[in-house]
């Protein structure tokens, strides 16, 4: 049992609950019609025969809408990740300078 700030979390209890729900679902499923066959409930596709060919969506096409709507953000990110080793170190220097200001400014401006 894991005590968090607001309460607690117990994985074992959660799994037990899950198994109980699964058993209940199985029992309810057992009450259904036994004469059901898969082809007896074919979806209606405007009278056209269902395509039998299996297709696979390529990885680049997944979340196209997401990346396309955030085009502005991603163009900045692509500019940042330019792969030039000099700029990698430049970022380190820049962050160090910012940290210098964070650490030293309270001394100058009380």
């Amino acid at each position: 049992m894991l005590h968090t700030t607001g309460g607690y979390w117990d994985a074992v209890a959660w799994i037990v609950a899950f198994i109980v729900i699964a058993v209940v679902v199985y029992i309810i499923r057992g009450l259904g019609r036994r004469d059901f066959r898969k082809d007896s409930a074919e979806p209606f596709f405007s009278g056209v025969e269902l395509p039998t060919e299996k297709t696979h969506v390529k990885a680049s096409n997944i979340y196209w809408g997401f990346t396309d709507s955030l085009k502005g953000y991603y163009s900045i990110m692509k500019k940042m990740h330019d792969g030039i080793i000099n700029n990698y170190i430049a970022w380190f220097i820049a962050i160090s300078v910012l940290l210098f200001f964070v650490v030293f400014l309270p001394e100058v401006i009380p």
Binding site: M77, H81, G83, I84
Partner: peptide, 10 residues
């Protein structure tokens, strides 16, 4: 050249 040696980017 470090601007050419960058196949790994983005």
């Amino acid at each position: 050249d470090s601007h050419i040696v960058r196949r790994l980017k983005e």
